[in-house]
């Protein structure tokens, strides 16, 4: 099973290697713009809980990137499924659903880590120095696992590439802006806070920010990300069967 999973992962990594420069450049553009516009140009006017906006923003961008970059694996799965028909090759191979999903999820998590390292590098250029210990990386891994699993599940359910774009517009983009990335959700009305606390990104942002600022990490957030990730991974396993006609 591990060998099969590694075959799926290896394929994704070989493709990533071929596109590495393009991918890295593409992954640097958005965070660079956010850091310049929100952090650098306006940041000195804004402080949250006694910290500079750049110090607040960077962990938020890391959380957002752990979601968007891992979820982006869905696009590649769909291209492989609908345009290149490579998914047929996996379905005709004697591999388990666990191997397939785990291989793709690992690939999604690797991409997320790559994007985050780029953000941290940009952060250093902007003079942001935070704590990057194990408790900083743990919520990143949990969040990217969760969203990579969600990406595989949804990629199996959609019927065409256009549906995938709709999911990004209606699910991922709103969460990216409202999940505690750019501002503390405590500034929003109580009813909206209650809704936003249901979003995994809100908990990921909170935990990553706490760790980055050297504060104790809320274990409730970590447990929630782990539990939700496990549930979505199981759903993704079932969705692979549904992808058969």
């Amino acid at each position: 099973m591990i060998n099969e999973c590694l075959a799926i992962y290896r394929r994704e990594m070989l493709i990533l290697k071929r596109r590495l420069i393009r991918q890295m450049a593409g992954q640097a553009v958005s965070p660079l713009l956010y850091l310049v516009t929100f952090g650098y140009a306006m940041g000195d006017k804004i402080r949250f809980d006694g910290i500079s906006y750049l110090d607040f923003l960077l962990p938020g961008l890391v959380a957002m990137s752990s979601m968007t970059r891992s979820f982006a694996i869905a696009t590649d799965i769909n291209v492989a499924r609908f345009y290149w028909h490579i998914f047929d090759e996996f379905q005709a191979a004697p591999i388990s659903n666990v191997s397939y999903v785990a291989g793709e999820v690992l690939a999604g998590m690797t991409r997320a880590l790559m994007g985050i390292i780029i953000i941290l590098g940009l952060g250093l250029l902007f003079g942001v120095h935070l704590a990057y210990g194990p408790m900083f990386w743990l919520p990143i891994l949990l969040n990217s696992f969760l969203f990579a699993s969600l990406a595989v599940a949804l990629a199996m359910l959609v019927k065409n590439h256009a549906d995938q774009s709709l999911l990004v517009n209606f699910v991922i983009t709103p969460m990216a802006f409202l999940g505690g990335t750019f501002f503390p959700i405590a500034r929003l009305p109580g009813w909206l806070q209650s809704i936003l606390k249901l979003l995994p990104l809100t908990h990921a942002s909170k935990a990553i920010r706490q760790a980055a600022l050297g504060k104790p990490v809320n274990l409730h957030s970590l447990a929630l990300l782990a539990a939700l990730g496990a549930v979505i991974f199981l759903i993704a396993l079932g969705c692979v069967n549904r992808a058969r006609d």
Partner: peptide, 14 residues
Amino acid sequence: HQHVNLDPELTVFE
């Protein structure tokens, strides 16, 4: 398969 379902960005060996 009816469609050529090879990874275009990978080599023959890969």
